[in-house]
């Protein structure tokens, strides 16, 4: 295959990656933006979404496509409920102290990982794609499902955006983000907003995982990379800025796809992690955030 088509393939892979990453990272960004909580267990919510999708499609006596569709709705709801529970029982009791919540979510990470290992097992298991359509380019064939993933991720992000900007619940969330004390003074139930935000953030990660699991297989340690990449995206995009997060997800996803195609993926990750550290040290508002 010559260079042009090769690059096209890399860009396609990168776009799929960027779409899923954007979904995951927006969840992390939302939680940080509204609650000022750095959720280290975010990758485990992603993993739970994928594992949940496997359970649902495996045990539900439905045709694969339909079962997967059920998983896309049920898995994020279940994961969101788990997250809300964790918020109420742990994070709230810590009064959302930034450093204590990081330690607590590290603990949560281990607990969720162990739960998956115990109930799901150490194997990687595939989930059947809801449909198998192969698009034929002149140079190579490409999975139609992957393109569907991009469209679906875009649709979910659009829905989140509409929710945040057009609904009362979204408005309440944004008000809490700007000033928690004032929001409380205006009679907003901040506890419920926080639990809801944490659940929404986790549900977005889970939804991203359900989308990707037919391509990637479900495994109890699969949360590690999405966590790291989401961190990178959220920090480079500017902590708590949804727009910055989206731009950074596109940039990182695309460049990761392209760089990994031509260079060692390990080297790409080294560069990315160092970049994140440098951004935090020298430009803490992110590459795309306005200077405070």
């Amino acid at each position: 295959m010559s260079f042009g088509p090769f690059l096209l393939l890399a860009l396609l892979e990168g776009t799929v990656m960027a779409a899923v990453l954007a979904l995951t990272a927006v969840g992390l960004s939302l939680v940080f933006g509204v609650m000022r909580v750095v959720n280290v267990a975010h990758g485990e919510f992603f993993m739970l979404g994928a594992v949940g999708a496997w359970f649902i499609t495996y045990y539900l006596p439905l045709p694969p496509g339909l079962a997967w569709l059920v998983a896309l709705i049920i898995a994020p709801l279940v994961v969101g409920a788990i997250a809300a529970l964790a918020d109420v029982t742990i994070l709230k009791r810590l009064k959302y102290d930034p450093e204590a919540t990081i330690v607590a979510t590290i603990g949560l990470l281990y607990i969720l990982q162990q739960a998956a290992l115990t109930f799901y097992g150490p194997d990687a298991r595939p989930v059947e794609p809801p449909f198998s359509l192969r698009l034929q380019f002149p140079w190579f064939g490409y999975s139609g499902y992957k393109l569907f993933v991009v469209a679906a991720a875009g649709a979910i992000l659009l829905a989140v955006w509409l929710f945040m900007t057009r609904t009362k619940a979204g408005l309440v969330m944004r008000a809490t983000q700007v000033d928690m004390e004032t929001a409380r003074a205006f009679g907003i139930n901040v506890d419920r907003v926080y639990a809801g935000t944490f659940a929404l953030g986790a549900a977005l990660a889970a939804a991203a995982a359900v989308l990707i699991v037919p391509i990637q297989q479900a495994h109890y340690l699969m949360g590690h990379d999405p966590l790291l990449l989401s961190f990178i995206v959220v920090i480079i995009g500017g902590l708590g800025s949804i727009r910055g997060t989206l731009i950074a997800a596109l940039l990182i996803g695309l460049s990761d796809g392209v760089i990994s195609m031509f260079f060692s993926p390990t080297l790409a990750k080294i560069i990315a992690t160092l970049l994140v550290a440098m951004v935090l040290v020298f430009r803490p508002q992110g590459l795309f955030g306005a200077r405070a």
């Binding site: 750095v38 930034p98 450093e99 990081i102 961190f231 992690t273 550290a277 935090l280 040290v281 803490p284």
Partner: peptide, 20 residues
Amino acid sequence: LALRTAGVSFMIVTLMFAQA
């Protein structure tokens, strides 16, 4: 480098250096 930051940023910067 990392001590130019504090708190949560310090945690993440040290985490990233260790990961690298």
